[in-house]
Simulated scan of single mutants.
Amino acid sequence: MKKLLLLTTLLFCGALTFAQSKKAVVCHGPLPATQQFAMLAASNKFVMAHKKPLPLHFQSNIGKAITYKTSDGKTANAFEFKAKNPTNNYLLVVHEWWGLNDWVKKESEKIYTDLGNVNVIDMDLYDGKVATTPQDAGKYMQGVTEDRAKAIINGAIAYVGAKAHITTIGWCFGGGWSLQTTLLAGKQAAGCVMYYGMPEQNLAALKALNCDVLGNFANKDQWINTKVVAKFETDMKTAGKKLYLNQYDADHGFANPSSPAYNSPATTAAYGKSIAFLKARMK
């Protein structure tokens, strides 16, 4: 009888310890969306799905390289297109996983021209590094720390000033960080455009959004796939926020002409809707 009692006690204690350990794990919650996307670079399949971009050289006659201070005591690089006339309208741009390359600058100049009187700032979350191979891009993306990225973004928000009316746009890696930039902008946020980026999955964070979001996603995307997008749509509804959802019969990276995954019809449609969305939210 004593042996049976002892065995029962040991089993109960073991079960209790196991339950408590599981509870402790659950309490930590899921990884932040930006870290989830960065971890994808550990997958060779994900890395090799991003084909080496076609050569592109672009020299802007109206934009210029700038630097600004960040809260961690460092400086950040950026590329700026200043509005022709003084305005508080600002578009903060976040690059793809390749870095702040010539395609991003060229696309930003096009957006700058099509939006009209607006200031456009291409932020550099890679601190000057630009990848030309999938392997380097994966390495640079994994090397981005949450603290440094947020310091760069908050530095840009401080640079544009407290009166700035802030919209954001980004692709791939930058698609997820476009949404994070909007969250960091707080009440200054006016609109967010994200192309096939990892959505925020924390409902409390989404409830703090101060503006609408337009998402351009690819149905053939194996990672930011239709299930991920469907959950984002549900989460936004639960949070009481407006999501303008556009889904195309295309693959991840469809909007970049230098990418082998480029899809012209999807790019044209997504770009037109994105410009209309941003224009409607500019003062």
Rank of each mutant, 00 (worst) to 15 (best):
D136P: 09
I224L: 04
Y140R: 09
G116M: 04
K150M: 06
M1N: 13
L243I: 03
N117S: 07
K74C: 08
A65N: 14
R281C: 02
N263M: 03
L54W: 02
M39Q: 15
C27L: 14
Y195R: 11
G14V: 02
E96I: 09
D251I: 01
K69P: 01
K82S: 12
I224A: 06
H28Q: 14
Q20M: 14
W223K: 11
K69N: 13
M141W: 02
K242M: 08
W177I: 01
Y90F: 15
F277S: 03
K207C: 01
A230W: 06
C13D: 00
K51T: 09
L91E: 06
I166Q: 11
A19P: 04
Q59K: 14
Y196L: 04
C27K: 15
V229D: 05
L179K: 00
V193T: 06
K237F: 02
T70H: 08
T17S: 12
V213T: 05
K163G: 00
F12Q: 08
F217Q: 05
T234D: 13
K241P: 05
G14D: 05
A255Q: 15
G272T: 10
A131I: 03
A158H: 13
V104M: 09
A149E: 02
T226F: 10
N85M: 12
A42H: 15
K150W: 03
D114F: 00
L115S: 11
K22D: 11
A261Y: 10
I121H: 06
I152Y: 08
Y195G: 05
A261W: 13
L5I: 11
Q247K: 15
K106T: 09
T168Q: 07
G175Y: 10
T182W: 00
L183F: 06
M141Y: 00
A38R: 15
W171K: 06
M194C: 13
K283D: 02
L7H: 08
L183A: 04
W97M: 12
V47G: 01
Y196M: 05
L100H: 12
V94Q: 15
D251N: 15
T9H: 00
Y244R: 11
D72I: 02
I166M: 01
